[in-house]
Design a protein around this nucleic acid. Structure first.
Length: 115
DNA sequence: TGGGTGACGAGTC
DNA sequence: CGACTCGCCACCC
């Protein structure tokens, strides 16, 4: 940890800490781990996380609460099903209560543990 | 070693 | 309103 090669690890660590039934955005995670302009890298990291059971990638959406990465979930509605199974309402590939369910890492986690 | 890539985000037209 | 463009930067080939 605390190395550039652990960029993905930081992302995964934050994703692991996303509470059940809550969601966050790639940009929020990026800023939290000190890569404010690297939101794309978070998505890139999630792409590499496919196959990791403990990484709830479906809880990470884009800034609009859109299920942009659903195609990478193996199926077409797998991501939606996972979200709905957690009580998150998804309409037209978008989280309905996005503002209500949004979980900001910077408000619940200690940055010093990730940088 | 160098260049292409992309599950984003913010700004612009 | 929506559609488009650009910057960003760690990773892969």
């Amino acid at each position: 940890m605390t190395k550039s090669t652990d960029f993905f690890e930081r992302v995964y660590e934050v994703v692991r800490l996303i509470p059940y039934g809550r969601v966050t955005s790639y940009g929020a995670i990026a800023r939290f781990i000190g890569a404010a302009n690297s939101a794309r890298m978070v998505g890139y990291a999630m792409n590499a996380s496919v196959g990791m059971p403990d990484i709830a990638a479906h809880r990470v959406l884009n800034r609009n609460g859109l299920l942009t990465g659903k195609h990478h979930f193996g199926g077409s509605n797998v991501m939606k099903d996972l979200l709905e199974s957690e009580g998150i309402e998804v309409i037209d590939d978008q989280v309905k209560e996005w503002n209500e369910l949004f979980w900001d890492p910077s408000e619940h986690l200690d940055r010093e543990n990730f940088i």
